[in-house]
Amino acid sequence: MKVLIDMNLSPAWVGYLQTQGIEAQHWSKIGQSNAADTVIFDWAIAHQAIIFTNDLDFGAILAITQASLPSVFQLKTQDLLPQSVGKIVAQNLKRFEAELQSGALVTIDLERARVRILPIA
């Protein structure tokens, strides 16, 4: 599984996810920090990466475009640091790996996870 970490999340996620056996890159090492969400979206498609974000705009892009890729993994919490929620993120990335590989929008918070298979109807 290859994960692209959005600019709104700390680069510390790269190291944390890698210790969990998950390939990860932070957008700041790939593209411009002010790149439009559509640029990040297109890069993720081209590189078969799952977008890991706190930004709800990616879900909106999926709904509007009726795209079946890329998968988006949204974290909806106040504390976005891996030392606080890393375990829950890694568990859910692995738990929903098959869905994410096929095309899904996965939204998690501290208490639950929601999976929507793409394209979103």
Rank of each mutant, 00 (worst) to 15 (best):
Leu4Pro: 03
Lys2Arg: 12
Asn54Leu: 01
Ile50Tyr: 05
Leu100Asp: 00
Ile5Ala: 07
Arg112Cys: 12
Gln66Glu: 14
Ser84Lys: 11
Lys2Glu: 11
Thr38Trp: 11
Ala35Leu: 10
Phe96Thr: 00
Ile45Thr: 06
Leu110Ser: 15
Thr53Glu: 05
Asp57Lys: 12
Gln74Leu: 14
Asn8Phe: 05
Ala49Gln: 07
Leu62Ser: 05
Val3Asn: 05
Glu99His: 08
Ile5Glu: 01
Thr65Asn: 11
Ala67Glu: 11
Leu80Thr: 13
Thr19Tyr: 09
Val89Gln: 04
Arg116Ser: 03
Glu99Tyr: 02
Arg114Asp: 08
Glu111Ile: 12
Ile61Asp: 08
Tyr16Trp: 05
Lys76Pro: 00
Ser68Thr: 13
Val3Gly: 02
Ala24Trp: 10
Leu17Asp: 06
Gln32Leu: 14
Val14Ser: 06
Ala24Glu: 07
Pro82Arg: 09
Lys87His: 15
Thr19Phe: 02
Leu17Asn: 09
Lys87Val: 14
Asp6Lys: 05
Thr65Ile: 10
Tyr16Glu: 04
Trp13Met: 07
Gln91Tyr: 12
Val39Lys: 15
Thr65Glu: 14
Val106Asn: 00
Tyr16Ser: 06
Gln74Gly: 01
Leu80Glu: 11
Ala90Gly: 07
Ile30Thr: 03
Ile117Arg: 08
Ala67Gly: 03
Thr53Leu: 05
Ala90Ile: 08
Lys2Trp: 07
Ala98Trp: 01
Asp109His: 06
Phe41Asp: 05
Gly103Met: 07
Gln48Asp: 12
Gln78Gly: 11
Asp6Tyr: 03
Asn8Ser: 10
Val14Gly: 05
Phe73Gly: 00
Gly15Glu: 08
Glu23His: 13
Arg112Asn: 13
Ser10Lys: 13
Asp79Cys: 10
Ile50Val: 15
Leu110Pro: 00
Glu111Gln: 12
Gly15Ile: 07
Gln32Lys: 15
Pro82Val: 02
Arg114Trp: 07
Leu80Val: 11
Glu23Asp: 15
Asp6Asn: 07
Gly21Val: 10
Gln101Asn: 14
Ala104Asn: 07
Thr77Glu: 11
Phe52Lys: 01
Thr53Ile: 06
Ala35Thr: 09
Ser68Val: 11
Gly86His: 06
Leu105Met: 05
Ser33Asn: 14
Leu69Cys: 09
Leu4His: 04
Phe41Gly: 04
Lys29His: 13
Gln18Phe: 15
Ala90Ser: 10
Trp43Asp: 06
Leu75Met: 09
Arg116Thr: 01
Ala121Glu: 13
Leu62Met: 03
Gly103Val: 02
Ser71His: 00
Ala90Pro: 03
Ile22Leu: 09
Ala121Lys: 15
